[in-house]
Nucleic acid binder design. Structure first.
Length: 325
DNA sequence: AAATAACCCAACCGCTCTTAC
DNA sequence: GGTAAGAGCGGTTGGGTTATT
């Protein structure tokens, strides 16, 4: 990484240094914070302490030097679940989400999510019959026979919109589930393998001090009302039913949903799809949308794939022999 | 052992918001 | 109320590392 952003030298940038931070610079920055607190970032440069912009100093402090950061520690399963749930709730408000994850920065969360989305995208774009997939570790491990008809994943759809931000809190929560594209916003099904009872009360354990219960009430309530205990059933029944497997295939096709949204629900039979929280149901705008929601609105192709244990697909179709990889 | 792909993450950029004057 | 500076945030980039062939 060294030199990557140091091409622009101090002279070229008007004495502003860029690129990786040196230990000495960190030390200067830490000393500044010790003296004056985490503020007056621009004064660091104006005093000649560092040839960095205030912006750069602040970022360095927030992302790397701040105490109690979990630098170099991978996201735990619980943290992952929290991010997934909160992203579904808040959108790409990484700073806000990070406040629920002690020791994590918005950059951490953002990077984590980005990696996750890339992984997801690759899985969904995997041609089932492609021999070239043998060179792809993820594709090999996560062979997805039923998803290859899914249109290419559109990562951009996963970013939050300003439209959502402008809504009242109680509606913004709703909008991410109903108003916007169903196939996009419903993807955040809690990871089945993470449905430990002791992970379900994270809201309490990670509530930041300034958290306003009243403000978030509608969404928090719905979160707590989510039928998480049903998820494991959903997983196992899905994995063992060929009929349901076919439904999974169809659900992966937005056109199928569009055309057969209401009738498909009967096909699901005993399958316990994660269902929409009640507050969302009450806000449905049309019977068509309602029909889609009832058949398991949070379920989209990517959620099917990504939120299942990798080996779940072993039950759907025998994996090819390692010799064929 | 080399080549390649995938993943990770630090750091930057541009925009918006907040605050002080 | 207008404006400039500072601060904060989300998106993006690209080098380093690791895993796989």
């Amino acid at each position: 990484m060294a030199g990557r952003r140091e091409r622009l030298t101090c002279d070229e940038m008007g004495e502003i240094k860029k690129g990786p931070w040196k230990a000495e610079e960190d030390e200067v920055l830490i000393n500044h914070v010790k003296k004056y607190g985490p503020r007056d970032w621009s004064s660091i440069r104006s005093k000649g302490l560092l040839q960095r912009t205030g912006k750069s100093c602040r970022l360095r402090w927030v992302n790397k030097l701040r105490p109690n950061l979990k630098n170099g520690v991978k996201f735990s399963a619980e943290e992952e679940r929290i991010v997934i749930d909160l992203q579904a709730q808040f959108g790409n408000k990484w700073a806000k989400i990070a406040t629920y994850l002690p020791g994590r920065t918005d950059n951490d969360v953002k990077n984590f999510w980005s990696s996750r989305q890339k992984r997801l995208a690759r899985i969904l774009q995997t041609p089932a019959s492609s021999s070239s997939s043998s060179s792809n570790r993820s594709q090999r491990n996560k062979h997805v026979p039923a998803i290859h008809d899914v249109p290419p994943f559109e990562a951009s759809k996963f970013s939050s919109s300003s439209e959502e931000d402008s809504l009242p809190k109680s509606q913004s929560c709703l909008s991410s589930y109903t108003v916007k594209s169903l196939t996009v916003e419903m993807e955040m099904v809690p990871l089945p393998e993470l449905m430990h009872p002791n992970t379900l009360n994270y809201e309490q354990s990670f509530l930041p001090p300034e958290f306003d219960l009243i403000e978030k009430k509608p969404c928090i309530e719905t979160l707590s009302q989510l039928p998480f205990p049903q998820i494991p059933n959903f997983q196992s029944e899905f994995a063992l039913s060929l009929e349901n497997n076919e439904v999974v295939t169809r659900l992966g096709d937005p056109n199928y949903l569009e055309a057969f949204g209401s009738s498909i629900s009967s096909e699901l039979g005993n399958v316990q799809l994660p269902i929409m929280p009640t507050c969302f149901e009450s806000e449905r705008r049309s019977t068509q949308i309602a029909a889609k929601c009832e058949i398991g609105n949070p379920v989209t192709p990517d959620s099917f794939v990504d939120d299942f244990p990798i080996d779940i697909f072993d039950h759907i179709e025998p994996l090819p022999s390692p010799l064929d990889w």
